[in-house]
Design a binder for these strands. Sequence first.
DNA 1: TAGGTTAGCCTACAGATGTAGGAAAGCTAG
DNA 2: CTAGCTTTCCTACATCTGTAGGCTAACCTA
Lengths: 196, 196
Amino acid sequence: MATTKSGAPAGDRRVRRTHAALQCALIDLVEDRDLAQISVADVAEQAEVSRSTFYDHYRDVHELAEAACTGMLDKLIDLVTAIGSSPDNGDPVGSLQTFFATLAEHAGLYRSLLGPQGSARVIDHIRRRITAAALKTSTGKATTTADDPDNVHAAFVAGALVGVAADWLQRDCAHTPSEMAALTWPILSGCQLRRG
Amino acid sequence: MATTKSGAPAGDRRVRRTHAALQCALIDLVEDRDLAQISVADVAEQAEVSRSTFYDHYRDVHELAEAACTGMLDKLIDLVTAIGSSPDNGDPVGSLQTFFATLAEHAGLYRSLLGPQGSARVIDHIRRRITAAALKTSTGKATTTADDPDNVHAAFVAGALVGVAADWLQRDCAHTPSEMAALTWPILSGCQLRRG
DNA sequence: TAGGTTAGCCTACAGATGTAGGAAAGCTAG
DNA sequence: CTAGCTTTCCTACATCTGTAGGCTAACCTA
């Protein structure tokens, strides 16, 4: 039986093919259907993979969704880092605009995953990754203890970004990424201030 | 067949009893088990109600969870309103502290619902209600169009509060409510500022 | 308290979930 | 190219999901 977890570049070609097929299949399906309406059988069929093979790799659709958006998230995380680490020098509004533009590129997917019919697992995963990025850029720490006060600021910023993104996507991207960046930056910068 | 939706005080005593039984059952179960591990059959059995009766009232466990926390949410919403509508006069830090204390009263429940094994539906519902409250206190508007710029600020604040709460609960409430209020308020007040 | 109305329960069913064991094929190392 | 391990697929099964129809008993109204 397969015990392989996503993570390492995976040695076996078959595993890579199966992972890619399943993740692509889910991404295709979720672009025009809510995650809650997608069954394991649907994904397996779309991926041309047997249902039992699915269970060899993922526990359920939510776990697959988490794996599928991990790669796509890398770009978003880099942008969050760019926003936070450029209080003076960089171009935070530009990074923020690219952040929203990147979301818009896969609007159907993110709307489906972050909305009411989406996945708490994916939401939590995204929030954690943004929290970690925010923590690192504002304090330099890569990890913390549970009672570190700096966690609060990072969680605040991460939650705010996810909240704004989810709201924007659910309103069918009623503003352009540029407008969203212009609206969000004044608020975000107001709480970026750190007092030594 | 029953078509009754939660909302009105409900005319029929049987409906009230069934709603109460199912909601209490879920709240009991979710206090020490993740929502994802709770089946419709579990809830029905705990509530001493037949499984088919469950489906007469709720589509699935997530819909029940949403209904079950609606009442409990009222108190939280009032507190958010109190925080936002007292920039000078009131006691925002006190309201914020009560906000965290209220979460802590049902820590198991909220942790289960907001965490990775929770419900995207509940998360979305909570975020929407806090967004509406934040919008009303900061602008006086009860409703908006999708492209109203004020939505962004409200979604920002709502997401931030949910993010901080979820993070705190998942770290097993490593700070006291009082400490959380003291840590959160400086950040929150920084982005409460409205211009024009 | 007699009336119609409606919620609750039972049974049954088709589909989805998740697990297990074994056969056949593919892969990597040597 | 071979040997041995791993992955994939198949079948089978027990459970859960969600829906439907019909019967009974509780409820509200008058």
